Simulated assay, not measured.
Amino acid sequence: MTDHDDQPIDIENAQQLGEFIAQLAGAADPDAPAITLDTLDGYMTALLVGPPPAAPIQAMDALFGDDWPATFESQEQTDAFMDVLHLRWNEIADSLDPQALVESPEQMQLVPLISEFDDETKARLMADGSLSEDLLDRLPAAGALWAQGFLQAVEDAGTWELPEGDAARDLSLMLEAIEAVTLATDSSERDSYIQEAYEEPEGVDQDALIDDMLFTVQDMRLFWLQQAALKAAFSEVGESSSEH
């Protein structure tokens, strides 16, 4: 998991959340897309970034269906899950505090839960039978599942559309920076994106794309707050005009 020394997260809570999500995923339809801790974390981040009011329960219902609590054996277990879920939700919300983002725009505030399959981890999973050669070849690149969760939330919300104009173009470019992390590392689409988006594309690797994605997400938080402020201002002008 990705962590930053300047803004530590509750690692034990993240591990507990991961165990709960693995339990839910194990009980899910085997034909359904696999949901991981990364997916949930990206999804919840998008809910906190985007325009509508949101709650973590929305992410659970969207990813696992409305009856996901039935997986747990008792109300106590459900309550324990909700506790760790809300703690993580609050951590993400705190990292997206607008004042901190404005005061330190070059500072990485987000601490995403992104699984990293380094060579040692892969070897251990292969040795204990958790990972086959076939699955190893199909492992997504680092950050891809998190980005997919974020983008799924955007699609599910249906409230991220903007009228044509500079703001719509800015939003489109920001979403492209997130989608870039999901592209296969050996794909021509990824190569084309890097060539077009970077002045010096030679040194751009997956880690660079992830860093740019996270800074973009922070920018998105301020972008949507600005859009909300503009909408409120236009609404006040309209109300004032109708009174005269």
Rank of each mutant, 00 (worst) to 15 (best):
M82C: 08
E133H: 10
H86T: 10
Y43E: 02
N90S: 13
R138S: 12
D118P: 06
L136T: 07
D137T: 12
D31N: 06
I92W: 00
P56N: 04
D79G: 06
A70N: 09
N90L: 09
P98S: 05
D38V: 11
D118E: 10
I57V: 10
L47S: 01
L85E: 00
P53D: 15
E155Y: 13
L63V: 06
F64H: 04
L139I: 07
M126D: 05
A168N: 02
G42D: 07
E76T: 11
I57G: 08
Q77V: 05
L40S: 04
T36S: 13
A157E: 15
E161W: 08
L96P: 00
M174S: 10
D38F: 03
Q148Y: 14
L110V: 04
L85N: 00
M44W: 01
M126L: 11
E176C: 08
I92S: 01
V49R: 02
Q99S: 14
L87A: 13
W89D: 03
D83Y: 03
L131D: 07
I57Q: 15
M174A: 12
W160G: 09
L171F: 04
A123Y: 03
M60A: 06
M44T: 03
L40G: 01
P33A: 01
T121W: 11
E133G: 14
Q152I: 13
T45M: 02
E133P: 06
T71C: 12
